[in-house]
């Protein structure tokens, strides 16, 4: 009798592989109506890695992230964050939604947004204090936005907005960062700044996962990839997984062969 059958027989959850990995996903399915956006996806993100989630538009990359964090309901699937259900490991996770998902006309200043990242350390029925402001300023400084602290958020450029979102995530001081399209529509300087911060995080032993759409920078920025097109196509180190065959399968005919050749593939 195989190991699997033994486990099923025992009827208990005993994850053999990477027990307290930052993220273990099994059979995640999320559907809008009766059309699955993400179908039965497995993934396992090792600690201290920097993973790019790539796939064509509408392939369910963001949905995967949101389903993982319970921001949208899932149809089925088992999620473990550091070996625990998400709600027990919430403090160790920082999530950066897509920049376009919020209303930047909201009446708030840059510092107000970063302070939101300190929510967990403020406590119920209490207010943000001077020491929180200091921490928020430090985070803004790390993304090069300290001079903009009192600026109305609607006056920021796209790149600046993204940096503010990253500063908010830094304020959470988490071990595991999940970012949804952090490089979408930002200027080159911002992209460099964000990559530098993410690499710092990795150097500190933290784990980073980004939904990413620019195939030409995957090898430069990340060490692992997760290829998704509704289903998981492949997952693993960039060296072995970011291959022409896998990309072809992920993107289908939408990715011209010449384009693949241009990429610095393994």
């Amino acid at each position: 009798m195989s190991n699997a059958e033994l486990i099923a027989e025992a009827g208990k959850i005993v994850d053999v592989a990477a027990k307290d990995a930052p993220l273990t996903v099994r059979g995640l399915t999320v559907s809008y109506g009766n059309k699955p956006a993400v179908f039965s996806v497995d993934a396992s993100i090792p600690a201290g890695s920097m993973t790019a989630i790539i796939g064509p538009n509408g392939a369910g990359k963001s949905t995967f992230l949101k389903g993982t964090l319970g921001v949208i309901p899932r149809l089925s699937g088992e999620i473990r964050i550091f070996g625990k259900p998400f709600h027990e490991a919430r403090d160790r996770v920082a999530y950066v939604p897509q920049r376009a998902s919020v209303d930047w006309d909201f009446p708030a200043r840059v510092i107000d947004v970063v302070l939101m990242g300190l929510y967990g350390s403020v406590g119920l029925f209490r207010f943000w204090r001077a020491r929180h402001r200091e921490q928020a300023m430090e985070c803004l400084d790390r993304v090069g936005m300290a001079d903009f602290a009192t600026r109305q958020i609607g006056q920021l450029s796209g790149g600046q907005q993204q940096r503010v979102f990253l500063a908010r995530a830094l304020a959470q001081n988490a071990e595991f960062y999940l970012l949804d399209e952090p490089f979408a529509g930002v200027d080159a300087a911002t992209e460099r700044a964000i990559v530098a911060v993410l690499k710092d995080l990795k150097a500190e032993g933290r784990t980073v996962v980004c939904v990413h759409h620019d195939l030409s920078t995957v090898a430069e920025y990340f060490d692992r990839v997760l290829l998704i097109n509704v289903r998981r196509v492949a997952e693993g180190p960039v060296d072995t997984t970011f291959t022409a065959a896998n990309l072809q399968e992920t993107y289908g005919g939408r990715l011209a062969t010449t384009h693949i050749d241009e990429l610095r593939l393994a």
Binding site: S2, N3, A4, E5, A8, G11, I13, S76, G77, E78
Partner: peptide, 12 residues
């Protein structure tokens, strides 16, 4: 088929 454990109560 993959001889993997099944955790989900509803699936079981």
């Amino acid at each position: 088929a993959r001889r993997e454990p099944i955790y989900d109560g509803f699936t079981l």
